[in-house]
Write a protein that binds this DNA or RNA. Structure first.
Length: 414
RNA sequence: GUGGCUGUAGCUCAGUUGGUUAGAGCGCCGGGUUGUGGUCCCGGAGGUCGCGGGUUCGAGUCCCGUCAGCCACCCCA
């Protein structure tokens, strides 16, 4: 019997999980402030949704999906990404648009695990459905950017590009295919098969990067409307003071993107895992799934990689505000009452549930990483407790009714 | 799917040209007396050296196989 989690999965426990909690909370809070409602939807969905939505030619669909038959003979796939399912859920609901949705949860891709690449990984994201305006693109990109700012991720780069609308994409694809055929014999085997399946992907191949000088880029084929849209997005980003760089070769790996695409790159991580988030506009996806025309834009951010990029030094605050210590068992009920009261006042408080020596209780307080230990003993009869700052080692007597205030202000006003 | 690296205590690792009872740090448990942790001191528990086979008088150390983990390519978050 092995207790290891399955290949490519991780158990996230304290103290790491505290970092996760902080990041997830920050996202939830920010998305809510930007007006995004929560969407909760299945972790698995019909295989067809992903095959059609993400694109038959993509690596994700061709070799990375967890697909199986359920007991009813249906082909089921664990979601490898969010957007296709979210659009499916929206179409199923018949809700009004525009609609702004945020999600968080695990995604699954069957890959060889390595740093920052797991078979189960968490993404948070938003989808702005039913909105065509470049302002929506800007808002989405800004939300992601503010999120990274909020959690204190340093060295973040925002890359943007435009892939154009279906017409210009087709024109570009034709020209690119022709170009690639011309240099076919110089390309890697992977790139060669992609000439037929997904020529766009060859553009950001690391392997053949040097051979692609002069290859036609999406930007050269944009329609007037797409040029205008892209210009408006860039202008909006400037007005929002969001630093960005244009990357004309940025194409993204999922087929549904049109016009704006963007990526958040953590420059402090190795290239292998420095894409910590990405997204774009997907105006045709709803139709591809069999619905009506619903222009939309969204992103998803990789929590595992973000936590990786934050690193150890991103300071975590202590886990508890106060650990209550029962100096003698007669006063246990008073201590229990105090814990209850502090918790009701939104302070993080805890205590030992059974009798233990004062020494052992202090040890627990320390182990639990409490900011303060509060001793409930003889002084309780005088209406006071002893509060010990576990970091500084200093102690003061504080009136019972002033405890929560004292914990909040850290005794500074004393 | 391809390539590289690594498997020794709960964790991180050291183990000399193969040679007696396999070590350290951290962690864990107990103690340094009675209401004080973390720091300091003392003591203790804990390992079929991933697994299987081979070479040898003798293997943690060499060889083969196997399993597992890590990292990279590819791709992506």
């Amino acid at each position: 019997m092995s207790f290891r989690p399955p290949k490519g999965t991780d158990d996230i426990l304290p103290p790491d999980s505290r970092r996760w909690r902080r990041v997830l909370r920050a996202f939830d809070d920010l998305a809510e402030r930007f007006g995004y409602d929560l969407i909760v939807y299945p972790v698995f969905d019909s295989t067809e949704i992903f095959a059609r939505g993400v694109g038959e030619g993509t690596d994700v669909v061709q070799k990375e999906m967890y697909t199986f038959k359920d007991r009813g003979g249906r082909s089921i796939t664990l979601r490898p990404e969010a957007t296709a399912s979210v659009v499916r859920a929206y179409l199923a609901s018949g809700s009004q648009i525009p609609m702004k949705l945020a999600y968080a949860g695990p995604m699954f891709r069957y890959e060889r695990p390595q740093a920052g690449r797991r078979r189960q990984f968490w993404q948070v994201g938003v989808e702005y459905l039913g909105e065509d305006s470049p302002q929506a693109d800007v808002e989405v990109i800004e939300l992601g950017y503010r999120f990274y700012q909020t959690i204190g991720l340093e060295g973040l780069e925002v890359q943007v590009n435009s892939l154009g609308d279906p017409t210009s994409r087709a024109a570009h694809r034709g020209a690119l295919t022709e170009f690639l055929e011309g240099i076919r014999s110089h390309l890697s085997e992977d790139s060669r098969t992609r000439i037929e399946t997904n020529p766009l992907r060859v553009l950001d191949s690391k392997e053949d990067h040097s051979k692609l000088q002069g290859a036609p880029l999406p930007a050269e084929f944009l329609s007037d409307e797409s040029v205008e849209h892209y210009a408006a997005v860039k202008q909006g980003l400037q007005q929002a003071s969001i630093p960005f760089v244009e990357n004309p070769r940025l194409v993204r790996g999922l087929d549904y993107y049109t016009r704006t695409v963007f990526e958040y790159v953590a420059t402090r991580l190795d290239v292998a895992q420095n894409a910590v988030g990405g997204g774009g506009r997907y105006d045709q996806l709803a139709e591809v799934l069999g619905g009506r025309h619903v222009p939309a834009v969204g992103f998803s951010l990789g929590i595992d990689r973000i936590v990786l990029a934050l690193g150890e030094e991103a300071g975590l605050r202590p886990a508890l505000d106060a650990f209550i210590i029962v100096a003698d068992e007669q006063r246990r009920q008073a201590a229990v009452g105090l814990v209850r009261e502090l918790r009701a006042r939104h302070l993080r408080a805890d205590m030992e549930p059974g009798p233990r020596s004062v020494k052992a209780q202090f040890k627990s307080a320390d182990r639990r990483q409490a900011l303060y230990a509060i001793v409930v003993g003889d002084e309780w009869d005088d209406g006071e407790v002893t509060i010990r700052d576990l970091d500084k080692g200093e102690e003061v007597r504080v009136a019972r009714e002033r405890i929560s205030t004292y914990l909040r202000i850290g005794g500074e006003a004393e």
